[in-house]
Amino acid sequence: MTTKAEAVVVGASAGALEALSAILPALPREFRLPVMVVVHVPSDRRSVLAELFQAKCRVQVREADDKEPIAGGTVYFAPSDYHLLVEPDKSLSLSSDEPVLFSRPSIDVLFESAADAYGEGLVAIVLTGANEDGAKGMRAVLDLGGVALVQDPDRAFAPAMPQAAIRLCPSARVMALEEIAMYLQKV
């Protein structure tokens, strides 16, 4: 198990709610890493993910604020209609740049900026989804020495996104949701 881990980034799309429910509530109260999460949600809807998961989790959960310093043991959700990025000084930034692969927030944008900020200290996780977002970002994470975990496409609600990640990142570790949850508890 890596001891270098400093932060976790997660991307999920179609079927996200169920997949995240297997992972985030399992994080122990004393979990020390920050977790940044991008979920594709319709842009015209206020995101309720943070509230939803705060009720189910033992760690802090909230929607990311612009220029907020990143705190350990906290889950940050990207707000709907904004990209979420990690700054080199380990604070969060939001941007209203164009959607990437039709998505804003974009998993690639989060992963690439987090890879720059954390290098080999980053654990990136791609979960269920019906598009290809996250694959390029995961490639960047691996290229900078980070860890890549992908939900087993055969057991994902929507296999396309994990499949795309595996195609671009053959060295990523393919896991069931329970295994990902276990991994994080020991990271």
């Binding site: 990209h83 990025l85 700054e87 080199p88 930034s93 690439e112 900026s113």
Partner: peptide, 9 residues
């Protein structure tokens, strides 16, 4: 400017 987003662009 925010470095992460300047860098991306």
């Amino acid at each position: 400017y925010s470095i992460a987003s300047i860098k991306r662009r």
